[in-house]
């Protein structure tokens, strides 16, 4: 068994990242989880938050994702994210504008589906603002 795991980050538009990493920590729907080689196969939701890629017990890359799914197998961890931004490139003003917009959308939402979508967007924006502070 190799001592790295293939981490793939995919957005609807393209494959953003595909590289061998030692460990990756993903914000799962039920709490953060770390993926090391030989992880048991798992399907899970991903909440908005930061994915950390570790090398030699240090974070070498942090990426903010706006929710999605993760598929983990023994030698692979694939995260399907609707949006992904490197944490260094996050822009606080942008995030706050988005938060404002999401709040407005939630207040304006009438149907259940629209409300759900707005709530999801709100959570994403909140996480984005929080990620800026981190």
């Amino acid at each position: 068994m190799s001592d790295t795991v293939l981490f793939e980050l995919v957005s609807p538009a393209k494959l953003l990242l595909s590289e061998e990493v030692e460990m990756v920590v993903v914000p799962g729907g039920e709490g953060d989880f770390g993926v090391l080689p030989g992880h048991t196969p798992m399907l899970t939701t991903v909440r908005p938050g930061i994915i950390d890629i570790y090398e030699n017990d240090k974070v070498v890359k942090s990426i903010f994702v706006v929710g999605g799914f993760a598929e983990v197998s023994e030698e692979r961890c694939a995260v399907l994210a609707e949006e992904a931004i490197a944490v260094d490139e996050l822009d606080r003003d942008n995030a706050e504008a988005r938060l404002q917009k999401a709040t407005d959308a939630l207040n304006a939402a009438e149907s259940d589906v629209a409300k759900q979508a707005a709530e999801r967007e709100l959570r994403a924006a909140e996480a984005m603002v929080a990620a800026c502070d981190a």
Binding site: E30, T40, L43, T44, T45, F69, S73
Partner: peptide, 17 residues
């Protein structure tokens, strides 16, 4: 064939997916 573990439940993931 490799059985997945689901977290949260299958229904919830599917609802989202």
């Amino acid at each position: 064939k490799a059985l997945y573990e689901y977290e949260p439940s299958e229904e919830e993931i599917l609802e989202d997916l």
